[in-house]
Every structure is written in structure tokens, then in C-alpha cells.
Nucleic acid binder design. Structure first.
Lengths: 255, 255
DNA sequence: CGGCCGTAGTGGTCGGACCACATCTCTGGC
DNA sequence: GCCAGAGATGTGGTCCGACCACTACGGCCG
């Protein structure tokens, strides 16, 4: 193709340069073509040229506009898709996501899934900090409806012995609290830090040591603090709750 | 449709594909081919089949192994590349990153860059929580060397009036503190929350209101707390520091 | 009028070709 | 004998064109 801009030795051929790049002055060839396309689309969104939910031109058109091949453009789109910025609907088109916390922070789960060893402890440390804050905020702001939701999962968790179901309601319990805290971004991060595979990996060993009962007690304490609308008690209870797992895991790593 | 005539090969309708994968036990056709490839590679890493730093087979081989085209495989690789899981070196090969916090949390900056309005406040709220904790931890753990590094940036920041340079050292100041806290994951998240474009966007307006002097005072207070090895003071100072910006931004949004 | 169905348009996949870069190998001069 | 340079090899990067799978729209028929 015409991407052979600096052909030095065999200085002929040169079929049709054409170069659809009007802006002379330093083409600024930085990084790969695909990388540039990613940045450009991101910039378009950043500058407000592309609104959330809006549909983009077709892959073919986009590729033409940026002067690259469809293949490269597809890679760029794929990249932005996994980042939660774009959404491709087969047969329909490519759309900008709502760019909400949940969309963009979904990739956070990957971190949790691929981390192991010491980093798991670090992640739990981050979770402890955020979870305790979120629980404290929830204690101050939670509405009756939201509290009912929390209690629903608390009850369901205590009503079964199936580990899988317990884990499921455990996650929902904390998720409901995080949502009640009123900071969607924080909730989304916590969601990632509690991703299913992450919890499952740690939980497997943790609950083998009869931690069920303790978990229930800790959850009950968190719940009491929410009912009492006592942020400080809620913060302490949540911190202790996560701290328990944290300590256990830390002990596991040391042997 | 854009393509009309066929190449006129007689016998057709017979899928020349033949699918190199025997239809043995349920192909499990979930999602797109590329998406599956992404999951499979992720799983390989998760299961330890691929160690950090290790080199992967070539794109062509990988594509063959998973029974997909090179194009699709490339999209999968590109996706994992932007997620910080893989690293492609032109002419050399594809490698698994060290899977360190910095590698995986780089995408966090995208969130900050693409967020606006109320979500910016939420992000600052998260930053306040983490930054104050990190600063408190640093007060208890910082080494003389690390403290010297912090002081270097503090001095450099006070020695200039160039906004660009101030911002630069401001970031480095907080980065050094976060590193001293001893939790790389937390530091990486804070790094993302303070990404250059994010700070620049908020800073632009903030420092127009003569916030320079206040910022310097707040930094000095944080520094004093570090020197005094007083975690509680450090926590308070950091929280107040971020809180200032947070309040200002909140006020901006309300009009 | 409404549901069915065809069709145009879109993303998804494929295969092949070539280019740019990194690395190793082999050569030839010193 | 040694090492620099030229070449060969292999890898990711880019491009093209064809075709498949799905969706959405609109006209046709009952």
C-alpha cells in the first residue's frame, strides 16, 4: 500500500502516493496505526464529538476517514470495546456506551482475576479501605427500600448452607450496601474487587475453616450499624469484616 | 451489497471450510470467536500455563491452535494488550507482562479521562479515601531515602511558577508518597486517578482562583506529618488536601 | 391493517499478501 | 583469529477483498 513513505534504496516504484493526509507539517508518526486510531476515537469522545449512546459511522467509513484499513480499525474498535468505551452490535452498528462507572470499570475485574500472591492482599487492603468507607456512607444515607434489599440478601444468606448460594448473596449484600453509599464509581470498583472468580478463589480456603458463622456474625454487625444509622460503627464493622479475610490470606502466604 | 459477481467457480455450496476442529463434543459457541480467544488466553495465564514475562507462540501459531484466523487472533491480542496483560514487540514476539499492578491498572486512567460532571466528584471522593490512607501508611513506613525523594519534589514545586512544572512535581510528590505506603496496587490506582489529563482538566480552573498558595501550604502540612511520622495527622492533611479540590469542583458543577 | 419475508446494510470472520523491524547467521576484511 | 557488516530468517503490523451472520427496514401479500 502507500504506507511506504521512506523507501530509500529502491527509489522507484512509487505507484500512487496520494497520502490522504492533508495536514503537512510533521505527520507525527507515533506508535502503530491502530494505537493512533484508538487515541483519536478516545479524543473524539473526550471532546464531546461523540455523545454517550450515539452511533458511530460504520467500520468501513471510519477506516476511510482515518485513512487506515478496516482491519486496523477493527482492532482499535475491539480495544475500545474491551475497555467498555464502545459497544458493537452485530448487524446494527457501533455505539458509544453510556460511559457510566460500571461500563468503564468492568475491566477492573481482570486485575482481580489475574492477581495472586501478595497482590491479593494488596487488593483486599484497597477493598477494606473502600468497603469501610462505603459502608459508613451507607449508614448515613441508606433509604428504607435499600435497607430492605440488604436485609433480603442477609436473610437469604443465613437460610442456606450451599456455599455457592452463600457466596452469591454475600456479594449481593455488599453490593447493595455499596449502592446505598451513593457513589457509583466506588461501587463499581468494589464490584470489580469482589468479582466472582476472585472471591471464589479466596473463599474456597477461607470458609473451610468454619468461617461461615463468623461471616454471619460480622454481617449481622454491619446490618445493625446500618439500622442504627451509625457510620462509625458501620465503618469499623466493615473494616473488621474484610480485615478478617485479609489476615487469613496474609497468614496463608507466609505458610 | 457491495460485491456482486462471484469468481465463477463451478461447484460450490459445499463449504470448503471443513472446520479443522472435529465437531466432537459441543463446540460451545458462546460469543464471538475473538471473545472466546480472549477468554482462552486469559484462562491460560490464570491457570499458570503462561508465566509473566514468558513469550507466547506466534500470532500465526496461536491462531492455528485455537482454530481461528490470524485476524481474529490479532484482535484478541490487541484487546489483551490494551488491558496490560500482553505486550507485543514488533519483530520479536508477544510476551506476557509482569502482571504487576502498574501494568494492569493503566487502563484506570481511561476512566478518569473520559469521566466528567458528577463522576469527577465521585472519582475525587475515591481518591480522597485512598490518598488519605496511603499518606497515613506512608507516615508510618517511609524511609529516609523515600522521604528525601518527596522533599525533592516539594522543593521543586515551590521553586517555580510554571503551572506545567508545578503540576508535574505535584503528581510526583503524591506518587512518591503513595509508593512509600508500600501498597503498589493502591499506588497504581492513585496514579490512574491522577492521570495527567484528569488533573489538567480540573487544575486548570482550580488554580485560577489563587489556589497555588493554598496547595503549597497543604503540601507542607502533609510533609510535616510525614517527618513527624504521625499517621493521623498525615491522613487528615491528605484528606483535606483532596477535599479542597473536591469541594471546589462540586461547587463548579452546581453553578 | 397486520404479519410475513426479502433485502440492504452492518459487524464478524477468513485467507493471503506484503511491509517494517528484530534477531541470528554467515561472510569477508582486518 | 576476531569482529563488523551484509544477508537470511522469522515476527508483528498493515492492508485488501471476499464472504458469512445478523439486524433492521420496508414493501408485499393475505
Amino acid at each position: 500500500m502507500d504506507q511506504s513513505e521512506q523507501s530509500a534504496p529502491p527509489a522507484q516504484t512509487v505507484p500512487v502516493q496520494a497520502t490522504p493526509v492533508p495536514k503537512g507539517a510533521v505527520p507525527a508518526q507515533k506508535g502503530t496505526v491502530t494505537q493512533r486510531a484508538i487515541e483519536q476515537i478516545k479524543a473524539m469522545i473526550g471532546e464531546g464529538l461523540l455523545e454517550p449512546g450515539q452511533r458511530l459511522p460504520t467500520e468501513r467509513d471510519l477506516a476511510t476517514q482515518l485513512g487506515i484499513s478496516r482491519s486496523s480499525m477493527r482492532e482499535a474498535i475491539r480495544a475500545l470495546t474491551v475497555l467498555g468505551v464502545l459497544e458493537a452490535r452485530h448487524g446494527s452498528g457501533i455505539y458509544v456506551t453510556q460511559l457510566e462507572a460500571g461500563d468503564l470499570l468492568e475491566t477492573f475485574g481482570v486485575v482481580a482475576d489475574l492477581s495472586r500472591g501478595p497482590r491479593l492482599v494488596e487488593l483486599l487492603e484497597v477493598r477494606r479501605v473502600l468497603e469501610s468507607t462505603a459502608t459508613a456512607l451507607a449508614a448515613a444515607r441508606i433509604t428504607p427500600d435499600q435497607l430492605a434489599d440488604v436485609e433480603k440478601h442477609l436473610a437469604a444468606m443465613n437460610a442456606t448452607d450451599d456455599p455457592e448460594e452463600i457466596l452469591s448473596h454475600d456479594l449481593a449484600f455488599h453490593r447493595a450496601i455499596a449502592l446505598a453509599a451513593g457513589n457509583d464509581t466506588m461501587a463499581a470498583i468494589l464490584e470489580g474487587l469482589s468479582s466472582r472468580t476472585f472471591r471464589a478463589r479466596v473463599w474456597r480456603g477461607y470458609q473451610e475453616e468454619g468461617a461461615f458463622e463468623r461471616t454471619r456474625r460480622e454481617h449481622a454487625r454491619i446490618h445493625r450499624a446500618l439500622v442504627a444509622r451509625d457510620p462509625e460503627a458501620a465503618r469499623a464493622a466493615a473494616a473488621a469484616h474484610v480485615g478478617e479475610v485479609e489476615d487469613w490470606l496474609r497468614g496463608q502466604l507466609e505458610g
